Simulated assay, not measured.
Amino acid sequence: MPNYRRADVQGGTSFFTVVTFQRQAFLCDEPVRTAFRNGIARIRKTHPFRIDGWVLLPDHLHCLWTLPPDDADFGLRWSMIKRFVTRHCKADPAPK
């Protein structure tokens, strides 16, 4: 098992790449894009962060976030966003 290291920098800026399960190409579908926008807006109300850049491709995304000065928990935010999108899209893990 890989030994990943995570940055624990409060107020830090981080680069993320997120890939869909089995690289399924659905992230650019309208319901998924809408769920991402709505989920991010909701999560930012209680767990703020700044989006410095975002690239959305069919099977993965890249983004840059900056967290508040007293916070380093980007993992919680990603967990909440992924959960929101999955619930609102009722994602089917079977390949198309």
Rank of each mutant, 00 (worst) to 15 (best):
H60N: 06
H62Y: 12
R42S: 05
G75T: 04
L64P: 02
I40N: 03
G39L: 09
L61S: 00
A72P: 00
R42N: 07
L64M: 13
V55H: 00
F74C: 07
I51A: 00
F49W: 01
D59H: 11
P68H: 08
L57Y: 03
A41E: 06
G39K: 10
D59L: 04
G53M: 00
P68K: 04
G53F: 01
F74D: 09
A72N: 12
H47I: 05
I51Y: 04
F36Q: 14
R44D: 03
T46V: 04
R44T: 02
K45H: 14
H47A: 13
A35F: 12
L61R: 05
D73S: 12
P58A: 11
T66V: 10
P48S: 06
N38Q: 12
I51F: 01
T66L: 02
I40H: 03
L56S: 03
C63A: 08
R33I: 03
L56F: 04
P58W: 07
P68G: 06
L61K: 02
T34R: 15
D71I: 13
V55A: 05
H47R: 12
F49K: 04
D73G: 02
I51T: 15
I43K: 00
F49L: 14
R50Y: 05
L64K: 00
P69N: 00
G39Y: 06
L64A: 10
V55C: 07
N38R: 07
D71R: 07
R42V: 04
A35Q: 11
I43S: 06
A35C: 09
H60V: 02
F36E: 14
R37K: 11
R33F: 09
L57S: 05
W65K: 04
T66I: 01
F36R: 14
D52I: 03
